[in-house]
């Protein structure tokens, strides 16, 4: 330590006494309180991708529930004389090989796809969240059973598993009509889809259960179940929601693929997958591609909307990605 006259630029300097208040205990009340969900919602609202995908989804849901508002043409009335007819007034998307009105079928086909996607996601999320949360929270033999069980269902590739499952269902439950057909696909996809959510939920719970607020709640004497349901599961939800939103799109594509393989929805069901499958000869020849374009385009837009929504939700829920 030296103690001579300071060198140039190192002279003693004291700033004028300005506002160097003690760290204030004051709470900023200029804006309303914000929970994490509200903050996420605020971030979501600022993201144009969210508004873009959400508006598309609103339109798609409208089509799902009120197809008849948009078209009065029966999607099941075929007129072979119009086979492969080009778009024309009153039939803006033209006709397919059977002479069905492509516009009407595209509109009415939305229902099967969207409902399969939604239902499968809901079922998978519920099963996955609870199995994953219980396994992660209680550990021990319960964890072993759930984790190995998930491994078993995960080890069989989803598409192949769904094909085998549906072919089995075909034998047990041959003539199952519209809703039966839809539920069969949902069951096949859900039975083999849950492990994905289980793994995510389990991982999130394992991380959260060691956080200090959980120990603090334990020290209160709060029961395990209270801890699980009021502290751990709500905090584990964000990654689960994000995965679920993205996988919704994946299930819609899977349904189309199954229908294309002739094993998904029965041919009597009006669906994008069935129509794309039926357009196969046109694709091979390269003519009359409008038969393929409209159902495939509708499907792609729907899936894209869910994917974009998933991206936007992830950005909003993950503060790290928000930066």
């Amino acid at each position: 330590m030296h103690n001579h006259t300071p060198r140039q630029g190192q002279e003693r300097f004291v700033a004028p006494a300005v506002s160097s208040e003690l760290p204030a205990l004051h709470v900023d009340t200029s804006h309303p309180p914000e929970s994490q969900w509200k903050q996420a919602w605020k971030a979501l609202r600022r993201n144009w991708l969210f508004w873009f995908s959400a508006s598309l989804l609103v339109i798609i849901l409208f089509v799902v529930f009120f197809p008849n508002v948009l078209t009065s043409v029966d999607p099941r009335s075929a007129d072979l004389s119009h086979s492969l007819g080009k778009p024309q007034a009153g039939h803006i998307f033209g006709f397919d090989r059977q002479g069905y009105d492509v516009f009407s079928r595209t509109i009415h086909g939305a229902r099967a796809s969207v409902i399969i996607g939604l239902l499968t996601t809901i079922i998978v999320t519920i099963i996955g969240l609870f199995t994953g949360a219980l396994a992660g929270f209680f550990g021990g033999w319960l964890d072993t059973i759930v984790s190995r069980g998930a491994d078993i269902f995960f080890a069989i590739p989803l598409l192949l598993a769904a094909i085998v499952g549906l072919s089995a269902l075909n034998n047990v439950w041959p003539d199952r009509g519209y809703w039966g057909g839809v539920f069969a696909v949902v069951i096949a996809l859900a039975v083999f889809g849950w492990p994905q959510i289980t793994r995510i939920a389990r991982g999130a719970v394992l991380e959260i259960k060691h956080l200090e607020f959980v120990d603090a709640a334990r020290s209160l004497g709060a029961s395990k179940w209270r801890n699980l349901f009021t502290h751990i599961i709500p905090n584990a939800l964000p990654p689960v929601i994000v995965t679920a939103t993205v996988s919704l799109g994946v299930y819609i594509v899977a349904e189309a693929t199954l229908s294309f393989l002739g094993i998904g929805l029965p041919p009597s069901v009006v669906s994008w997958g069935n129509d794309i499958a039926a357009a196969q000869p046109q694709v091979r020849s390269g003519d009359n591609l409008h038969v393929l374009f409209f159902p495939a385009g509708a499907l792609a837009i729907t899936v894209l909307s869910f994917m974009l929504l998933g991206d936007a939700v992830r950005d909003a829920l993950d503060p790290k990605a928000r930066k």
Binding site: P6, Q10, E11, R12, V14, A15, S20
Partner: peptide, 22 residues
Amino acid sequence: YKGEVVESGPALEILQDPQHQY
């Protein structure tokens, strides 16, 4: 403090004879 220099100088001097409130 908050992005500004409130005081500077020889180390010991500041410690034994701080001038600024902060």
